[in-house]
């Protein structure tokens, strides 16, 4: 990674962590000065921009991790002792997870740990073999890939998802376009979903789920393929969502995501650690 790219991502991460403009400028100047003296690359010196920004924000007293959830309390999702197998292949074994109202919980773990399966179980798209899942309120689900009609444009998706909650077609399009702008995307001129890039298709998928105004969002690798700026905007949108007292369960491998969540749940060896 070039130093310029690293610094750009670092600035975005600081902004996302809530570091003010003056502190951001100071941190960037200090970092650039250190790098010019050290004579080596930024990544070798500081690691990933996400990690370093989180450390700087913590040092400045503005933790990269989101503060406590807004008052309201209660559980949005309670998963108790859930197991799931596919043809004798155990995918989840007695997993228990709790997501409180107004919380953003990150679900992490190695590939094949069962993160996507757990999200599908909570969404009600599959049934657990054992255990119980209690969902309070409605859920919206963003799959890792797909979940869209490849022959419909973005605005058609906005209409389909928005009208389900009582918006008329024009309102749904307007609201979808507003959310798209917040993610730095001009959805009005977008082509059909099947021809969108991976990151843009994920933006459309996230917006579609948000248009349903569910109480809990289930996001499976939501910013797979998104650039750094889009990821920052995505988290800003998710925090605004959280401020409304809504919850989210985000499956992610990204170290940056761990720093931004209210809490982190790690699935390892088929169960929660």
């Amino acid at each position: 990674m070039k130093d310029e790219t690293w610094l750009e991502a670092f600035v975005h991460e600081l902004e996302a962590a809530g570091v003010g403009p003056e502190d951001r400028a100071g941190a960037v100047v200090e970092t650039e000065g250190f790098l010019s003296e050290a004579g080596s690359g930024a990544f070798e010196q500081f690691g990933s921009p996400q990690e370093y920004a989180a450390a700087v924000a913590t040092a400045l007293g503005q933790s990269g991790r989101r503060a406590d959830p807004p008052p309201g309390g209660g559980d949005a999702v309670v998963v108790s002792g859930v197991s799931k197998s596919y043809r004798r292949q155990v995918v989840l074994r007695e997993v228990s997870v709790r997501v409180g109202s107004g919380e953003v919980v990150v679900l992490t773990g190695p590939n094949g740990a069962g993160k996507s399966t757990l999200l599908r179980l909570i969404a009600g798209l599959e049934r657990p073999d054992a255990g119980s899942i209690d969902v309070h309120g409605t859920v919206g689900y963003v799959p890792q890939a797909g979940g869209l009609d490849p022959y419909l444009r973005a605005e058609a998706h906005f209409e389909l998802f928005g009208t389900a909650t009582g918006l008329d077609r024009d309102e749904a399009r307007r609201e979808g376009n507003r959310l798209a702008r917040e993610l730095g995307w001009d959805a009005g001129s977008a082509t059909v979903a099947g021809e969108l890039s991976g990151g843009t298709a994920q933006k459309l998928s996230v917006i579609a789920a948000m248009l349903g105004r569910p109480d809990t969002l289930l996001l499976d690798e939501p910013y797979e393929g998104m650039d750094a700026d889009s990821q920052r905007r995505f988290w800003a949108l998710l925090w605004a969502w959280q401020d409304e007292g809504r919850s989210a369960l985000v499956s992610s491998h990204s170290p940056g995501a761990l720093a931004k969540a209210t809490s982190v749940v790690e699935i390892e060896g088929l169960t929660v650690r």
Binding site: G140, Y141, G146, G147, L148, D149, A164, T165, L211, G212
Partner: peptide, 15 residues
């Protein structure tokens, strides 16, 4: 076939 991906999500959204 095309609806198999989309419609479960629409049902979750309230359809």
């Amino acid at each position: 076939s095309a609806a198999r991906d989309l419609e479960p999500r629409l049902v979750l959204a309230g359809w």
